[in-house]
Design a protein around this nucleic acid. Structure first.
Lengths: 140, 140
DNA sequence: CTGTATCCCTCTGGATACTG
DNA sequence: CAGTATCCAGAGGGATACAG
């Protein structure tokens, strides 16, 4: 074989000593499918402060619509992360509280919050630098 | 005041002893906006195993399209989580590797993976139970 | 108060084709 | 190989009205 390329392409991909989890995905996508949406973590965080009623949650989480709060709490209930208690009063009253599993998830999520707090400045700086060096428009 | 309700509604919302972070959101949404999409964590996980070329990443992450891999890696670069090295060879070669900050994020994300592994069965069970008790259709 | 039901719009991301 | 450009479908989620 003669020229045309540098030979670098003949390297395949040798090292690859796998990370903490054996292969590709681990179960990370599972968690993210559960908390990656716009509202779930906010509900989790609010409920980590104590029992909340429907309306209290809505007031505590500024932009959330009635519809999304209903959907979000229901999904959390379905997964056993939140417990719902309805009192047959008039007007009706419904309490939401974290289950043990839900609390453990909330704690894990706070790990992300810690990371965010620790690195948000660094990231903001990197982003500014990148944007300055790439005036060619939008990042997407 | 006479009847009409049970009096329960007069309770406002007394306790609320705030969680780990002072108020509402913390920076959790920041992180989730960064990793909550379909592909970012998968790229992070793959890169946590070592340096990877564009094509290697694509092969390692089954469903990802060329377009999404480009967008995902670029966003990671922009935030300083991934470093891109391009060699002006023919055909071109580009390496991606985690920065120190990127590695710390990957580590944090693995915390989610641990949680997922520890609770996936419990959650699957809760979900099955809920679906059995609510035959009325879809959860959304 | 606690939901449910509709409508509708945006944004993400997949498929495909093309360039250097 | 690495990346860009275009088109397009579907999910997520907001606004609103209605119900128990």
């Amino acid at each position: 074989m003669s020229v045309g390329h540098t030979g670098i392409t003949s390297q395949v991909s040798p090292p690859a000593p796998v990370g903490p989890c054996g292969e590709g995905d681990c179960g990370i996508r599972d968690v993210l499918d559960r908390i990656g949406d716009r509202w779930t973590v906010l509900v989790l965080v609010e409920l980590s402060k104590g029992v909340r009623r429907f309306r209290e949650l809505q007031r505590a989480i500024p932009g959330i619509s009635q519809r999304m709060l209903t959907l979000t709490t229901r999904r959390l209930c379905r997964d056993g992360l939140v417990e719902r208690t309805a009192y047959p009063t008039i007007p009706p009253q419904v309490d939401y509280r974290l289950t043990a599993v839900g609390r453990s998830l909330a704690d894990t999520v706070f790990g992300l919050a810690d990371w965010s707090a620790a690195h948000k400045d660094t990231i903001a700086a990197a982003r500014q630098r990148w944007d300055a060096e790439h005036p060619s428009g939008q990042p997407d």
